[in-house]
Amino acid sequence: MNTPTTIPQMIENHRDSLLADWLQEQATIGSQRLLISDAELRQQCLDFLRLLQEATASGGMKDMNSPQWDRVKELLESVATSRAQQGFSPTEVATFVFSLKKPLFGRLRQDIRDVENLGREIWAGTEMIDRLGLYTAEVYQKARDETISRQQAEMLELSTPVVNLWEGILALPLIGTLDSSRTQVVMETLLQKIVDTGSTVAIIDITGVPTVDTLVAQHLLKTVTAARLMGADCIISGIRPQIAQTIVHLGVELGDVATKASLADAFQLALKRAGLEIRRPAASALAGED
């Protein structure tokens, strides 16, 4: 049953008052805050009404996948994406579409006297707006997910700096939880840096690792083993007292991996292995400088 709807005609006739009421409605709900300027919001609403009218006028209010809805969807996509970036909440984004219901149905009530007709039009309108609202929410969610995964990738890159402490001595300060994908990145960057710098000692500092469980310990040992296979020694440093206790309670076997409580101790050991030492200048030399 495909009865012609009066909604496009109605939007056409009352566009200005509809727009004013819709803006008013959004302001009352108080959802727009100060994240977006009035002029911008007004433009978005105006565009949406125009495109909605075009889409509904060319028929097929049921099927959102038909080509006449493409431009409406495009607009909603841009609105949802930009709002996701501006920091709107999901409710606020969905309200953009849903708040159109009240003014739209108000106009329908004014225009149509016949109860049966009115019921049908309102049902058609509800269905349409619900679909548009859900679509907006979906796009918003997708935009948020993209932001999150991009930030994760950035964090992964930032969180594994390999520093050259001394000729032949590398340090890898680990910060944050170690999972498999991160260990992979850590391992690759460390090994590559070992090759690039020709370092024989690498200090892995776990001061910034909040918890060490069997899995994390296993990941650490893998990295140490891989470095050893390439001919570099690893020292694990920054082991806090609680972590030392956990490691023993879990029964993790660290084998013959050198461990030190602090990065300073580890550095000292590394210098010793490289045949270097740090000394205070002799008292006479100091006096001579003054």
Partner: peptide, 24 residues
Amino acid sequence: MQPAVAITLVELGLQLPGVRTALN
């Protein structure tokens, strides 16, 4: 030993405990 080779061996569970290694 190349980094990729070292990672592969570790993933295969071959830790070559008795083998001495050096960078170059």
